[in-house]
Simulated scan of single mutants.
Amino acid sequence: MSRQGTKTDRSGGKVIARRKPIQLLLRRLLWAGLFVGLVFPVAVILFYRLLPPLVTPLMLLRDAPMQYDFVELELISPSLIQAVLVSEDQQFCEHNGFDWKQMGIVWDELLHTGSASRGASTISMQTAKNLFLWPSRSKVRKLLEVPLTLMLETLLPKRRILELYLNIAEFGEGVYGAEAAARAHFNRDAKGLTRGQAARLAAVLPNPLERNAGSPSRNVQNRANQISGQIRIAPAALWSCL
């Protein structure tokens, strides 16, 4: 047997040795892992470039009747777009998926106090999580968010990423997306939301199962007022990529 896995017959010819079953299994597992980890997400993201998601993992995991109606960005109130950008990701038009400055602030807080007063997830990261991953916090999930976010930023324009986010974000129990949220909480379509209503919807995003945009607590209303004030003074560059 040669070092290349061949053997010589009596006539001097070479015969290729058969691969061992374990080698074939490992090779197949490698290709399967490559497909699941790279090819499949890319194919799905390219699908979402043109067509809306039928369902997300979060929708399947929640045990509640689902309200979900995908609409184009033009059919969502500019006030809600501005409120979400102001409250969730003010660097959305500038970053490549990750807000390194915000992540540095959170990291410093963790080092000095052991906890963080805010999150560092961008809209791109949240969209990647909502499209592909599960809601519970874990290091594995956060690790998987990184390549998925890079894929989103590479394959989709910013406008489409925001459109996807606003349509699949959870705004209440079983309520997904701006259109369903506007109807559930304010009995109107997403395009007709006022600035105050839009700010209340943005205010519940960090914890939509415990906060209610239609009947806001004092804390939610205070947060909505802050968001409304930020919209008034926000520079146009904040939504320049849209």
Score class of each variant (00 low, 15 high):
68 Y>N: 02
199 A>Q: 09
220 V>M: 01
209 L>R: 02
238 L>M: 09
215 S>F: 08
220 V>D: 02
9 D>Y: 04
94 E>A: 12
218 R>S: 11
182 A>T: 14
137 R>V: 15
200 R>L: 14
50 L>A: 06
157 P>S: 13
131 L>F: 14
200 R>W: 07
34 L>F: 15
98 F>I: 06
97 G>L: 09
39 V>C: 06
107 W>K: 05
131 L>T: 12
117 S>Y: 01
158 K>A: 03
63 D>W: 08
242 L>E: 03
44 V>K: 11
86 V>S: 01
139 K>A: 14
185 H>K: 09
72 E>W: 00
51 L>V: 06
126 Q>K: 05
149 T>N: 09
156 L>D: 02
189 D>V: 14
232 R>D: 12
76 I>H: 05
112 H>A: 10
211 R>I: 00
59 M>T: 14
189 D>T: 15
78 P>F: 15
12 G>Q: 08
175 V>D: 00
136 S>H: 13
117 S>V: 03
12 G>L: 05
80 L>F: 04
34 L>S: 12
56 T>G: 01
109 E>C: 05
212 N>Q: 09
201 L>P: 03
235 P>F: 09
212 N>Y: 05
152 L>W: 04
102 Q>K: 01
101 K>V: 03
65 P>M: 13
201 L>M: 10
192 G>P: 07
228 S>Q: 12
96 N>Y: 11
109 E>D: 13
48 Y>W: 13
22 I>C: 01
242 L>M: 08
50 L>D: 02
98 F>Y: 04
163 E>S: 05
199 A>N: 01
74 E>S: 13
208 P>E: 01
239 W>G: 00
229 G>M: 11
37 G>V: 12
190 A>R: 00
119 G>Y: 04
238 L>P: 00
235 P>W: 03
7 K>D: 08
213 A>N: 14
3 R>E: 13
127 T>I: 10
104 G>H: 03
80 L>E: 03
58 L>H: 03
150 L>V: 15
70 F>H: 02
206 P>S: 01
143 L>C: 07
176 Y>G: 10
74 E>G: 11
216 P>R: 00
146 V>F: 08
142 K>S: 14
86 V>L: 02
181 A>M: 04
236 A>G: 08
62 R>L: 08
194 T>Y: 04
57 P>Y: 04
159 R>L: 13
